[in-house]
Design a protein around this nucleic acid. Structure first.
Length: 224
DNA sequence: GACCAGGCACATC
DNA sequence: GATGTGCATGGT
């Protein structure tokens, strides 16, 4: 069976199992951008607490965030963990939005996706997955997001070698699927859902891709 | 109390 | 270029 068919069938099976995922909670593009940083290696439950604190402080917009004292910002986002690093990352992101779009993400509309991606990656603390998440879920660009769950699932299905990099995975999806915003958003969300369920039931499959793990393909019945 | 969560940068070999 | 490590909170 060719790759296109396998990836399409995987998506259809996931979609049947879980339904359409209206996945990224967020009130506007900037909130989604901040969430993308805060959720790095972090459970969304903790992220939502940090976002709530930012909102209560009236700080969840580019201008106040860009100007805020580091210690103050650290305290607000503390529940999301890695709070010293993330405070600096969020502030750099806010400053970028201020400088690049006068604090209004909608003004980035005419900038080519590749250009935005490079600018995001140039910010310290924004790596490939965070940049793609911002592009896909905040800025509505059809660029595929992959993560550790994607790696585990593809490897376990025998679609990729264990030691593949981020772009190898990303290119796999983008070379096979049409660049459709809703499809990319939902497919990534489905993979995360499967990954959560699967890996929680099997604690051994930890640590990909830095510490890749081989395993049995995920049986179809686990999709249902 | 151990293990994990929707990464990333940096050091070292 | 690959591999290891620090970053930190809160849920299971």
């Amino acid at each position: 069976m060719d790759l296109h068919t396998r990836l399409t069938e995987l998506y259809e099976a996931l979609r049947r199992a879980y339904g359409h995922r209206d996945w990224w909670p967020g009130d506007g593009p900037f909130e989604v951008m901040v969430g993308a940083v805060l959720t790095q290696r972090t459970n969304w439950n903790n992220v939502s607490k940090a976002i709530e604190r930012l909102k209560e402080a009236g700080a969840l917009s580019p201008r106040p965030l860009a100007a805020m004292e580091p210690e103050r910002l650290q305290e607000l986002i503390r529940p999301a963990g890695y709070y010293r690093q993330k405070a600096a990352r969020v502030r750099r992101l806010a400053r970028w939005v201020m400088e690049r779009a006068d604090g209004e993400p909608a003004r980035l509309e005419d900038v080519p996706t590749d250009e935005l991606r490079e600018e995001l990656l140039a910010l310290r603390g924004i790596g490939p997955e965070t940049a793609d998440s911002i592009l896909l879920y905040a800025l509505e660009r059809a660029t595929f997001v992959v993560d550790t769950y994607t790696n585990r699932i593809l490897v376990r299905h025998g679609l990729l070698e264990p030691r593949c990099g981020y772009y190898e995975m990303k290119d796999l999806f983008e070379s096979v699927l049409p660049p459709d915003l809703d499809l990319y958003r939902d497919y990534h969300a489905q993979l995360v859902e499967l990954g959560k369920r699967h890996c929680r039931s099997r604690p051994r499959c930890k640590g990909c891709p830095a510490r890749p793990v081989l395993g049995e393909p995920i049986p179809d019945d686990e999709l249902l």
